[in-house]
Simulated scan of single mutants.
Amino acid sequence: MATTVESLNIPSLRLDDETTITFETFSLPSTNQRTLGPPHPPNTQLPLALKPSPDSSVTLDAAISTIKHLQRTKTLTTLLARHGTLLFRGLPITSAADFSAFAHAFGYKPHEIIGIVVDRPLLAPNVAPANEAPKEVRIYNHNESPQVPHAPEYIFFYAQKAPTVGGETPISSSLELFARAQREIPEFIDLLVEKGIQSRVTYKTQRQYVGGSTLRQAFGKEILDGDDEETQRRKIEAQIARYGRGEYTTFEWGVDGEDGARQLVLTHQLPVVRTQPGTNLPTLFTGLAAYYRNTVEAQKRSGAGRKNVAQQCFGDGTPIPEEYLAALARITEEIRVLHRWEEGDVLVYDNIIAQHGREPWEGEQGDRVVLASLFDGESVPGAYGFGGWAQVVQALDG
């Protein structure tokens, strides 16, 4: 039976305006959609799937007008804060430019990743490929940018091209992940709250894996081709200072043992447990399960899989027991769904409370083209604990 907006207890998405679209909810297969557990309210679906009603006149302009109208009262932002992820299907979005216009209609501020670890060439305003790693590489569930202090609050994904087999995007709730982990491995949660994590990210002159970024892509936005090494360093360090975290973010210059080129090792003490603005519910904002799965995969296949450029341990420098990481990975897989893409689909994530990933696919690399657009919210996650490192902040403008 199709789920109605009313049964989900969410605001009506019908507007009395011929230039706008009426959105209605619809059901997806159980592999692609589930009802979330605590602390989510009853009947909370992940993702909440929306499509134009049959009597709507569907144009891109009408879709953009509708989004802007709904966002005057932050209707969609409120839905994201409850469900974590929204799916929009059946809209005439056919290009990076269309996708950019649709995403910007939500009214969020475009996000700049300082210290980006993947290569995202710009295709349209605030639009880039989601990830260009080889199709065989599985990207496990994570919140976006958990290895750096300044992360986006909202993530938009658009399927410009969908593969025939595979290539799904996993979706899971970080709120539910915390609740399950607190119940099943409470001692691990206690340690994370007490210590946070230490994230050591290595940036090299050359990219470290296919789809990865270079040192200049991560911090070199002010670097000019004629700059000498000292000038480049100064400009890179100025970008690091924009994190605004003082003693909780430190760096060390060094030399790559493989090719003798310079490298930068950046160390952050970061909170894994954060709180959702507006509710203060604790959420696990992390890539630890992905970090663990990547490590296991590399050990099985002699280095194959996605490279961990960030080394993770407890905030005091002590290692995280494998049993905790394995349990976190297990829970993550138990609560996730796999979004099966159709061309034109747009997934919108509240990055504070929802995780994503990427499944391998059959066929050619170009059979799956998913674009991404990242945005900041009005506030950042709150602290859960009392350490000075426990509160992340918006990066300074630069």
Rank of each mutant, 00 (worst) to 15 (best):
S57E: 12
L175E: 02
A238G: 14
V201Q: 12
V380R: 15
Q208H: 12
Y291C: 06
K135V: 07
P360R: 03
G244R: 08
F23Y: 11
V380K: 15
S53L: 04
K74W: 11
E378D: 09
A124S: 14
S95E: 01
P152M: 09
L86T: 03
G226A: 14
P282C: 12
F26S: 10
A128W: 00
I197Y: 04
Y324L: 13
T164F: 12
K51N: 07
T66N: 12
S100K: 06
E323P: 00
R14N: 09
A81R: 15
T59K: 05
I236R: 03
G166A: 03
E252Y: 09
V210W: 12
H40Y: 09
R14P: 00
L325I: 12
P170G: 08
T35S: 13
S12G: 14
Q45N: 05
E252C: 09
R207N: 11
P125T: 13
T205I: 03
I223K: 04
E362T: 00
I335W: 09
R207H: 15
V348F: 02
F26G: 11
I93C: 10
N351Q: 13
K135N: 13
A63F: 02
H339G: 05
G84W: 08
D376A: 01
I67T: 08
A290R: 07
R89C: 02
T214C: 05
T295L: 13
G107H: 06
F219M: 01
R358I: 08
T3N: 11
E222A: 11
H83T: 14
V369P: 14
Q45A: 05
S56E: 06
V255G: 15
E229C: 07
I223D: 02
S174W: 02
Y292C: 03
Y349R: 00
L60C: 01
L46K: 06
G377C: 10
T94C: 06
D345V: 00
E247I: 07
G211I: 00
D225R: 11
D61T: 14
S302F: 15
